[in-house]
Amino acid sequence: MTEHTDTDIDSSPPTAVHGATPNGEELADDVAKVLETRDMDVFYGDFRAVADVSIGFRFNEISALIGPSGCGKSTVLRSLNRMNDLIPSARVTGEVHYHGANIYAEGVDPVEVRRRIGMVFQKPNPFPKSIFDNVAWGVKINGFKGSKAELADHVEATLRQAALWDEVKDKLSDSGLSLSGGQQQRLCIARAIATQPDVVLMDEPCSALDPIATLRIEELMLELKKDYSIVIVTHNMQQAARVSDRTAFFNVQLDEKGQRTGRMIEFTPTDVLFTNPEQQETEDYITGRFG
């Protein structure tokens, strides 16, 4: 769609770009990962919010991050597309590899990172613009060179992919804010995928929605994973159990300085995590025996 020469991110498989990794032993298995953190710490000023996260997300899977408030799951999510750059005191150490390339390496354009790794937020936040423009906007600022008709085709295809087309096709010039909450969230998903990323990050995308709207988003996620890899943060464990292929459990731990730091406890196939988790800490949390 658009040509970018100011970045060294390559979308070919990792092995074609990077051979041996500096920490090759970190790779627990040989399956290719679309996105992978290595010994990642995230700081807010001097405060280490998250420590030692090494987690690899596979292609075309839905990965869920669960855990109590303050466990760092949203911080981890925001680090995956450099959204934390927007917080002045935030600092990430370690590496985050996207198709094998470190997105925190020098010379990488964070805007390009966010185009390839899209994000959907907790509260539906459409722009106060028309439904059409909400989807077309990201495409246009990324230098779309096609005709008006081609842009309209792209918007339609995107809205179809977001399972929203049939509901909005007759009112594309209405404000995005005129839609229901669930429709607004699907519009935000359409906006996120309009720039053709291959990873979509979702931060509690259903927490403001009723069960019916939630179900539609979940169905959409299952549809989208054919084309995208999805990482979702959710407080709703049933949601993680319903939609995800793999689930990571994060918990708050006191570090050596007595600070509360988020750590990843385990990352396993979702069916295993919810029937027979490896770690007692995970079991205690998911069965509600915490505190």
Binding site: P68, S69, N251, V252, G288, R289, F290, G291
Partner: peptide, 16 residues
């Protein structure tokens, strides 16, 4: 560590 409330404890005890 994760903010349990007396209500939560009660519901869990009932479950157990």
């Amino acid at each position: 560590m994760t903010g349990t409330t007396p209500e939560h404890e009660e519901i869990r005890h009932h479950f157990e």
